[in-house]
């Protein structure tokens, strides 16, 4: 198992998963933060932050996960009241409505939290709502291998 690490995130990828940890190039005066994508299928290099362009390629056995960091001003807000990234999900946590494919086939869950002083959202899409139970174990092994560096990472700033 090899590790993917960048921008204060580290992920030991289980077999069958691939991923990318990046930051958008900031415009003048803008700050950007870490975005991590993980998938069991070929992740297009042009995948949008919340998976547009990738979730359309998912087969029913596939998993797609996004870990997206927000600015530190979000810390303390009610949306980010939870502490620590959730790593264990049950099948009832997923819903068709949370998936944005609009087909009713996929299933998704989204959580907001703060870990190590950094606010994040975790968005997970499963290829099949009906078959979601079978995908929980590999999802768990992926999430167990993700580590968020506790120290604050200085965001890219231009201007």
């Amino acid at each position: 198992m090899r590790t993917l690490a960048a921008h204060g995130l580290r992920a030991a990828l289980p077999v069958g998963f691939e991923g990318r940890i990046h930051r958008h190039e900031p415009a003048a005066g803008e700050q950007t933060y870490a975005v991590a994508h993980f998938s069991t299928f070929a992740l297009p290099p042009t995948t949008a932050d919340f998976g547009n362009g990738a979730v359309q390629l998912m087969a029913t056995r596939d998993i797609f996960a996004v870990l997206l960091e927000y600015g530190t001003e979000s810390v303390g807000r009610r949306l980010f009241a939870d502490h620590g990234m959730p790593r264990a999900f049950e099948h009832r946590d997923f819903s068709r409505l949370a998936a944005r494919d609009g087909s009713g086939v996929q299933s998704a869950v989204q959580r907001f939290f703060v870990e190590g002083g950094r606010p994040f959202t975790l968005y997970v899409v499963l290829g099949s709502h009906l078959g979601r139970r079978a995908l929980l174990a590999p999802l768990r092994s992926l999430l167990d291998g993700i580590h968020i560096e506790p120290r604050p990472v200085r965001p890219r700033v231009i201007g």
Partner: peptide, 23 residues
């Protein structure tokens, strides 16, 4: 084996050999 490395922009990326039918 899976390919682990960086993008030209310095971001971390890993490509799984099993993620596509043919790579």
């Amino acid at each position: 084996p899976d390919v682990f490395g960086t993008t030209p922009a310095g971001d971390a990326v890993a490509v799984s050999a099993g993620a596509a039918d043919l790579t």
